[in-house]
Computed example of a mutant assay.
Amino acid sequence: MAAFNWPTALMGGIFIGISATVLLLGSGRIAGISGMVNGAMTFARQEMWRWSFIAGLLLGALVYEYGLATAPTPHSTFSPISMIVGGLLVGWGTRMGNGCTSGHGVCGLGRLSMRSLVAVLVFLGTGMLTVFVMRHGVVS
């Protein structure tokens, strides 16, 4: 397993923040991925910019995986059915929470949104509780 490379992680975080800021200042739009995908599903002509954003995410992942990656990308051992069910649950949760971690954590906190602060605290608390339960064998 490759060692954590904090300068690369820091640069990635800076680029994400800059990108979200440029989108917000340039168009008044928020770079939350679940909202982006949801808006793209309308296929309205004025929403086609969302498809460009999503294509950029996918293209960036492909460029990284097949061009820039210096270490192998981890692959999941979960079954495809588990991943599909998990993805549907995440999608349902983002609709229930009116946004995803990127929307609330990166964009909402940057705008000092109280709703986003509550959402991020719930995300983090749920994640910590899940790790505790899984690591300490409360559920087997």
Rank of each mutant, 00 (worst) to 15 (best):
L59F: 08
G26C: 02
G26W: 03
A31H: 00
G32A: 02
G67C: 04
M48R: 13
G56S: 15
L24T: 01
W51C: 15
I33P: 00
A55Y: 08
A44M: 09
E47C: 05
E47M: 09
E65C: 05
T42N: 07
A40D: 04
Q46T: 09
G26K: 05
A44S: 15
W51N: 10
L57C: 11
L24A: 07
V37Q: 03
L24F: 03
A71W: 07
Q46H: 09
A40E: 03
G56W: 12
A31W: 01
L62M: 10
M48Q: 07
L68S: 04
A71M: 07
V63I: 15
E47Q: 11
T42H: 06
P72T: 13
A71D: 14
S27T: 15
G28M: 10
R45M: 11
A61L: 12
G39S: 11
I54W: 03
A55M: 12
W51I: 15
S27H: 10
G39M: 04
E65H: 13
M48H: 06
R50L: 10
L24C: 02
G67E: 08
A69P: 09
G56Y: 15
G32P: 01
R45N: 13
G35V: 02
T42G: 09
G67P: 12
G28C: 09
G26Q: 04
V37D: 01
G32S: 03
I54S: 01
L24N: 07
R45E: 10
T70P: 04
N38S: 08
N38Y: 03
E65I: 08
A40M: 13
A71K: 13
G32E: 01
R45G: 03
G56Q: 12
A55S: 12
F53D: 03
M36C: 10
G60A: 11
G32N: 02
G39V: 04
A55D: 12
L59C: 10
A55F: 12
T70G: 15
L24I: 00
A40W: 01
L59A: 11
L68E: 06
L59H: 05
A31V: 01
A69H: 11
A71N: 09
E47A: 13
I30L: 06
W49L: 07
